[in-house]
Protein backbone atom coordinates (compact mmCIF):
# COMPACT_ATOMS: atom_id res chain seq x y z
CA UNK A 1 0.00 0.00 0.00
CA UNK A 2 1.31 3.39 -0.85
CA UNK A 3 0.62 6.27 1.42
CA UNK A 4 -1.92 8.58 -0.12
CA UNK A 5 -0.54 11.69 -1.66
CA UNK A 6 -1.63 14.48 0.57
CA UNK A 7 -1.96 18.14 -0.13
CA UNK A 8 -3.35 20.50 2.38
CA UNK A 9 -3.14 24.08 1.35
CA UNK A 10 -4.57 25.56 4.54
CA UNK A 11 -4.32 29.28 4.74
CA UNK A 12 -2.49 29.59 1.50
CA UNK A 13 -4.28 31.35 -1.34
CA UNK A 14 -3.32 30.18 -4.77
CA UNK A 15 -3.82 32.28 -7.84
CA UNK A 16 -2.51 30.46 -10.85
CA UNK A 17 -2.43 33.10 -13.54
CA UNK A 18 0.01 31.58 -15.89
CA UNK A 19 3.16 29.64 -15.79
CA UNK A 20 4.78 31.14 -12.74
CA UNK A 21 2.33 33.65 -11.31
CA UNK A 22 1.52 32.21 -7.92
CA UNK A 23 0.47 34.43 -5.06
CA UNK A 24 1.04 33.33 -1.53
CA UNK A 25 -0.99 34.85 1.23
CA UNK A 26 0.92 36.63 3.91
CA UNK A 27 1.71 34.41 6.86
CA UNK A 28 0.38 35.12 10.32
CA UNK A 29 3.76 36.28 11.48
CA UNK A 30 3.85 39.14 8.97
CA UNK A 31 6.61 38.06 6.64
CA UNK A 32 6.81 35.08 4.39
CA UNK A 33 9.39 33.57 2.08
CA UNK A 34 9.82 34.14 -1.62
CA UNK A 35 8.00 31.51 -3.63
CA UNK A 36 9.75 32.38 -6.87
CA UNK A 37 13.16 31.99 -5.35
CA UNK A 38 12.12 28.68 -3.84
CA UNK A 39 10.83 27.41 -7.15
CA UNK A 40 13.86 28.48 -9.10
CA UNK A 41 16.64 27.88 -6.61
CA UNK A 42 15.63 25.86 -3.58
CA UNK A 43 13.39 23.16 -5.00
CA UNK A 44 16.12 21.95 -7.37
CA UNK A 45 18.37 21.41 -4.36
CA UNK A 46 15.77 19.09 -2.90
CA UNK A 47 15.92 16.95 -6.03
CA UNK A 48 19.67 17.15 -6.44
CA UNK A 49 21.99 14.20 -6.00
CA UNK A 50 24.33 15.57 -3.36
CA UNK A 51 27.14 13.11 -2.84
CA UNK A 52 24.78 10.18 -3.27
CA UNK A 53 21.88 11.61 -1.28
CA UNK A 54 18.70 13.21 -2.51
CA UNK A 55 16.11 14.83 -0.26
CA UNK A 56 13.23 13.80 -2.51
CA UNK A 57 14.34 10.17 -2.70
CA UNK A 58 11.64 7.61 -2.11
CA UNK A 59 13.25 6.46 1.08
CA UNK A 60 13.60 9.98 2.43
CA UNK A 61 11.14 12.82 1.88
CA UNK A 62 9.36 12.02 -1.38
CA UNK A 63 5.73 13.03 -1.17
CA UNK A 64 3.43 10.03 -1.13
CA UNK A 65 6.12 7.42 -0.66
CA UNK A 66 8.62 8.30 1.97
CA UNK A 67 8.59 8.07 5.74
CA UNK A 68 10.93 10.91 6.54
CA UNK A 69 8.96 12.87 9.09
CA UNK A 70 6.87 15.95 8.33
CA UNK A 71 8.96 17.40 5.52
CA UNK A 72 7.71 16.21 2.12
CA UNK A 73 8.63 17.19 -1.41
CA UNK A 74 7.43 16.05 -4.79
CA UNK A 75 10.22 15.71 -7.36
CA UNK A 76 7.70 15.75 -10.21
CA UNK A 77 6.29 19.17 -9.30
CA UNK A 78 6.08 21.50 -12.28
CA UNK A 79 6.66 25.21 -11.98
CA UNK A 80 3.55 27.03 -10.87
CA UNK A 81 1.72 23.83 -9.97
CA UNK A 82 -0.10 23.06 -6.79
CA UNK A 83 2.53 20.36 -6.20
CA UNK A 84 5.23 23.03 -6.29
CA UNK A 85 3.21 25.13 -3.90
CA UNK A 86 2.95 22.12 -1.60
CA UNK A 87 6.72 21.72 -1.77
CA UNK A 88 7.07 25.39 -0.83
CA UNK A 89 4.71 25.08 2.10
CA UNK A 90 6.46 22.00 3.38
CA UNK A 91 9.90 23.59 3.08
CA UNK A 92 8.70 26.82 4.66
CA UNK A 93 7.37 24.79 7.56
CA UNK A 94 10.95 23.73 8.27
CA UNK A 95 12.29 27.28 8.47
CA UNK A 96 12.81 29.69 11.31
CA UNK A 97 12.40 33.25 10.11
CA UNK A 98 13.80 34.63 13.35
CA UNK A 99 16.96 32.60 13.17
CA UNK A 100 17.58 31.28 9.68
CA UNK A 101 20.60 29.19 10.60
CA UNK A 102 18.47 27.40 13.18
CA UNK A 103 15.96 26.24 10.57
CA UNK A 104 15.40 22.51 10.38
CA UNK A 105 15.78 22.81 6.62
CA UNK A 106 19.44 23.49 7.43
CA UNK A 107 20.10 21.82 10.75
CA UNK A 108 18.72 18.48 9.56
CA UNK A 109 21.03 18.02 6.55
CA UNK A 110 23.88 19.36 8.66
CA UNK A 111 22.91 17.03 11.54
CA UNK A 112 23.56 20.04 13.73
CA UNK A 113 22.33 19.26 17.23
CA UNK A 114 19.39 17.33 15.86
CA UNK A 115 18.39 13.89 14.64
CA UNK A 116 18.46 13.19 10.94
CA UNK A 117 17.77 9.75 9.58
CA UNK A 118 19.51 10.64 6.35
CA UNK A 119 22.71 11.75 8.04
CA UNK A 120 24.87 14.60 6.80
CA UNK A 121 23.86 15.82 3.35
CA UNK A 122 25.90 19.00 3.04
CA UNK A 123 28.11 21.26 5.12
CA UNK A 124 28.06 24.97 5.79
CA UNK A 125 30.75 25.33 3.16
CA UNK A 126 28.54 23.96 0.41
CA UNK A 127 26.55 26.17 -1.96
CA UNK A 128 23.32 24.36 -1.13
CA UNK A 129 23.63 25.56 2.46
CA UNK A 130 24.33 29.13 1.40
CA UNK A 131 21.40 29.31 -0.97
CA UNK A 132 18.90 27.93 1.50
CA UNK A 133 20.25 30.22 4.23
CA UNK A 134 20.00 33.18 1.90
CA UNK A 135 16.43 32.32 1.00
CA UNK A 136 15.36 32.12 4.63
CA UNK A 137 17.30 35.19 5.67
CA UNK A 138 15.54 37.26 3.04
CA UNK A 139 11.96 36.93 4.03
CA UNK A 140 9.60 39.19 2.17
CA UNK A 141 6.24 40.75 2.69
CA UNK A 142 3.13 39.72 0.87
CA UNK A 143 3.51 42.78 -1.32
CA UNK A 144 6.92 41.61 -2.50
CA UNK A 145 5.93 38.07 -3.26
CA UNK A 146 5.80 36.40 -5.72
CA UNK A 147 8.16 38.63 -7.65
CA UNK A 148 10.86 39.31 -5.09
CA UNK A 149 13.25 40.17 -7.88
CA UNK A 150 15.64 41.70 -5.45
CA UNK A 151 16.61 38.25 -4.22
CA UNK A 152 17.95 37.23 -7.58
CA UNK A 153 21.25 38.12 -9.06
CA UNK A 154 19.91 38.45 -12.55
CA UNK A 155 18.28 35.13 -13.32
CA UNK A 156 20.83 32.96 -11.64
CA UNK A 157 20.42 31.33 -8.26
CA UNK A 158 23.40 33.07 -6.85
CA UNK A 159 23.36 34.97 -3.68
CA UNK A 160 22.74 38.59 -4.39
CA UNK A 161 25.46 40.56 -2.75
CA UNK A 162 25.33 44.22 -3.82
Amino acid sequence: MRLAVSLFVGAILILVTGCEAVTVEDGPGGNTLCFNYFQSCINPILDENIAGKTCSASGCHRQGEAFGGAFRTDPTAADGSTEMLANFISAKGATNLNNAANSKLLTKPLVSGILHGGGVVFTTADPQYSEILYWINNSVTAQDDPICDNLFNGTACQIYNP
Binding site: L3, L7, G10, G27, F67, S90, G93, N96
Partner: peptide, 24 residues
Protein backbone atom coordinates in the same frame (compact mmCIF):
# COMPACT_ATOMS: atom_id res chain seq x y z
CA UNK B 1 11.19 38.97 20.35
CA UNK B 2 8.25 36.91 19.20
CA UNK B 3 9.21 33.31 18.44
CA UNK B 4 9.13 31.77 15.02
CA UNK B 5 5.67 30.87 13.75
CA UNK B 6 5.13 27.19 13.09
CA UNK B 7 1.97 26.70 11.13
CA UNK B 8 -0.02 23.52 11.51
CA UNK B 9 1.61 20.76 9.52
CA UNK B 10 0.30 19.21 6.33
CA UNK B 11 -0.75 15.73 7.34
CA UNK B 12 -1.83 12.71 5.37
CA UNK B 13 -5.60 12.93 4.86
CA UNK B 14 -6.13 9.19 4.43
CA UNK B 15 -4.41 8.35 7.67
CA UNK B 16 -6.08 11.30 9.37
CA UNK B 17 -9.48 10.03 8.32
CA UNK B 18 -8.61 6.68 9.87
CA UNK B 19 -7.39 8.45 13.00
CA UNK B 20 -4.02 6.76 12.61
CA UNK B 21 -0.43 7.75 12.05
CA UNK B 22 2.72 6.11 10.74
CA UNK B 23 5.69 5.20 12.86
CA UNK B 24 8.91 4.33 11.10
Amino acid sequence: PAPNVISDKTLDPVLAARDTAVLS
